[in-house]
């Protein structure tokens, strides 16, 4: 009987190994299916015109009707404007707060408070960030409630905690001996922080910025509330209504026009590529940082 029991335990153990292997197959199926579908439907749309032309008139091909395919120049420009504006808002704030926490806060409670606030902020749902930015503008200036500026504020809310957290961690990896050596040479404190500490931590800071951009570039929910409807016109300035890649995917998905739908898949592929490149780049800078820290 003892032998039997051991045999059953072994068989059960093997069974569980197989099950856990199956789990990884099962989770890869939908994930691979998403990427496959995006490539399958997005790749045929991507050509020169895709990057240079305006959004076309809505159209579905029927016998006798051929549709103008057009391009996503405006959503693409819009996304770049949003990335630039939101980074401009979020990066200085995030870096400043992180430097304050690490360089001037030390181990005190105020230093940990900033980390905690950043952690809590990172849990804010993106739609709530959108509602927040919208209400700010409703209170402040309703005529600009739908604009690149408004949308950038919503995205910046999502970016600040990521930049703060990664920047804080990067600064903490800089050894105290480096700071002490600089101060001993008589450099002023702020120059030491900017030229020595911050530069040493730069790869980590860049990682944080890239991660924050990757997160916000794909967000559609806050744009739905704050960006308005500016896809049909060329870019008119940051206080005008606008368009962006994720937002165009939403329009293409919810409108019944074939050419808009096709462009939406092209946008999905473009966005996927952009975000994968940003993620890989951020991993690369992180490895760079790790190598530098080991002194290689």
């Amino acid at each position: 009987m003892k032998f039997d029991l051991a045999g059953r335990r072994k068989i059960f153990s093997h069974g569980m190994t197989v099950l856990s292997g199956l789990a990884i197959v099962v989770i890869m199926v939908p994930l691979v299916a998403v990427v496959y579908e995006v490539f399958l439907l997005g790749a045929p749309v991507i050509n020169g015109a895709f990057f240079t032309q305006q959004i076309p008139y809505p159209c579905t091909p029927e016998p006798g009707i051929t549709c103008h395919q057009g391009g996503v120049l405006v959503p693409l420009e819009g996304s770049l404007v949003l990335i630039g504006l939101s980074s401009l808002l979020a990066v200085p704030i995030g870096i400043g707060a992180a430097i304050f926490a690490v360089e001037y806060g030390g181990e005190r409670r105020s230093a940990r408070l900033i980390g905690m606030v950043a952690d809590v902020l990172s849990g804010v749902p993106s739609i709530v960030a959108g509602a927040f930015a919208l209400s700010l503008f409703i209170i402040y200036d309703p005529t600009q409630a739908f604009s690149y500026l408004d949308a950038s504020i919503a995205l910046a809310v999502l970016m600040v905690p990521i930049v703060t957290r990664t920047c804080e961690e990067a600064l903490r990896t800089v050894p105290h001996s480096v700071r002490e050596a600089a101060l001993a040479l008589g450099i002023s404190r702020w120059k030491m922080t900017v030229r020595i500490t911050f530069v040493s931590a730069l790869p980590g800071v860049i990682t944080g910025i890239l991660l924050a951009i990757a997160r916000s570039a794909g967000e559609a929910a806050p744009l739905l509330l704050t960006l308005g409807q500016g896809c049909a016109h060329p870019l008119q300035g940051i206080t005008a209504e606008g368009c962006a890649l994720p937002l165009w995917i939403f329009y293409g998905a919810t409108n019944p026009y074939q050419n808009w739908y096709n462009l939406a898949w092209g946008c999905a592929l473009l966005l996927l590529g952009l975000i994968l490149i940003l993620s890989v780049l951020s991993r690369f800078t992180l490895d760079w940082m790790a190598r530098r820290m080991r002194g290689e």
Partner: peptide
């Protein structure tokens, strides 16, 4: 002077992060 200016800038950024948290709740 440089040190003081720098510290003020950092403090402003820090206050902005904490104020953002408070503002989210207050504005909604």
């Amino acid at each position: 002077v440089g040190d003081i200016t720098f510290l003020i800038l950092l403090l402003l950024a820090t206050i902005a992060v904490v104020a953002l948290m408070v503002a989210l709740v207050v504005v909604l």
